[in-house]
């Protein structure tokens, strides 16, 4: 996902161009403030998947990415905002 957008140091600038062509597959590629439908949670860690479920983060629900700062993604689900790391953002398929 990352490498399709070229050099990571210039990701911010190049991403824009990238997004037009690539359809995001997980939250790391999501546009900010756009509503996405969650397709599924892809992880071996079933406990984390179950926990995300209790927050209302599971297939069929809507999610927004509000901002991304380094490895942290601020996401919005069901009226609440969370900070998640890149690994978890990658596990949430959209």
């Amino acid at each position: 996902m990352e490498n399709t957008c070229g050099n990571r140091w210039f990701r911010r600038r190049e991403r824009k161009g990238c997004r037009e062509v690539a359809v995001p597959k997980d939250l790391t590629g999501a546009k900010f403030n756009e509503s996405y439908e969650i397709q599924g949670i892809e992880t071996e860690n079933q406990a984390m998947a179950d926990f995300l479920f209790t927050l209302g983060c599971y297939e069929g629900q809507r999610v927004h990415v509000l901002s991304a700062l380094g490895d942290n993604y601020v996401i919005h689900i069901k009226g609440a905002r969370y900070s998640i790391d890149r690994a978890l953002a990658r596990a949430i398929r959209i």
Partner: peptide, 10 residues
């Protein structure tokens, strides 16, 4: 820890 995810409500 196998998968070391981080999530925190803000």
């Amino acid at each position: 820890s196998k998968s070391n995810y981080f999530i925190m409500e803000l």
